[in-house]
């Protein structure tokens, strides 16, 4: 499913879901009011209300199914099963759901998948759609959307837009995994603009956090900190961090993804 298709379906389902929920609510109020009106015996408002409840339960069952698919797909992405995740996300996006949060989660998962596939423009497009959509949005969806937007914009070299996306996050209270993601993106950004002094601020805490990140991310953060230490003349830190990175990842692969880090191994 292309990002454009997913966005079109997301918009359509959100509108349809809101209309349906509104219609059900109005129907329920009307049927309740019917109890207090003189009506012919053939019309039983209680039966009508039961009918509405049955319709609501059927629609809610579909929503729950879609929610389960969305929840499972994030686990698949985390474990690197990207093809299975793609199928699952597509199913979740195609399934009808009355809930706005479930639809948003489906789109967020697609953005997460595209990020894992290094398809940065698609990720940015999907995250922008999520952040621009009006109406209530679960807080974790908007925070993750913003983090992924900043991440993909950095990869695309759009530093100003990445900075704007990051700025919006400082107003929120972040979970540990969100804080780790923010630290990683923020460090990438600071390295890209050459803010070495800022990178070395509270370095001990940053190293502790790098140790609980996924291996590749943790190693890259320590390499960035090693470069910052080198640039600011803190040779002991630079040497210690560089040696740790050498034990954690293949240095050639690391430099291929971040050529700037090649300076650490220049003779």
């Amino acid at each position: 499913m292309t990002a454009e298709n997913a966005i079109a379906r997301f918009r359509r389902d959100i509108t349809l879901g809101a209309l349906l929920k509104g219609a059900l609510a109005v129907g329920a109020v009307l049927v309740l009011l019917l109890h207090f009106l003189p009506l012919p015996a053939a019309i039983n408002p209680s039966l009508l209300l039961m009918l509405l409840v049955v319709v609501w339960v059927v629609l809610w069952y579909g929503t729950m199914k879609s929610s389960r698919l969305a929840a499972e797909s994030s686990t698949l992405i985390a474990s690197g099963m990207l093809e299975q995740a793609e199928t699952q996300i597509e199913q979740s996006l195609r399934a009808f759901s009355m809930s706005r949060s479930v639809k948003s989660l489906g789109l967020l998962n697609l953005a997460l998948l595209r990020l894992a596939q290094k398809r940065w423009p698609d990720t940015a497009l999907l995250c922008r759609e999520l952040l621009a959509s009006r109406g209530p949005m679960p807080e974790h969806v908007s925070k993750s959307g913003r983090l992924m937007l900043a991440d993909s914009l950095l990869e695309m070299g759009d530093l100003r837009a990445a900075h704007d996306a990051l700025t919006g996050l400082y107003r929120h209270r972040l979970s540990l995994s969100e804080s780790l993601h923010l630290l990683r993106v923020q460090s990438d950004y600071l390295a890209a603009i050459g803010a070495w002094g800022e990178l070395m601020r509270d370095v001990e805490n940053k190293v502790s956090l790098a140790e609980i990140m996924p291996p590749q991310h943790g190693a890259r953060l320590q390499a960035i900190l090693a470069l910052a230490a080198k640039q600011t003349g803190q040779a002991e830190w630079a040497n210690w961090l560089r040696r740790r990175v050498e034990l954690l990842v293949d240095v050639r692969e690391l430099v291929a993804t971040r050529p700037l880090l090649g300076q650490l191994w220049e003779t």
Binding site: A28, L34, H35, F36, P38, A41, P45, L49
Partner: peptide
């Protein structure tokens, strides 16, 4: 009795919802 029963069941339904 129909009107009274319907009124009472309406109240009960409302409370239950």
């Amino acid at each position: 009795l129909q009107a009274i029963v319907r009124f009472l069941s309406g109240l009960l339904m409302f409370a239950m919802v």
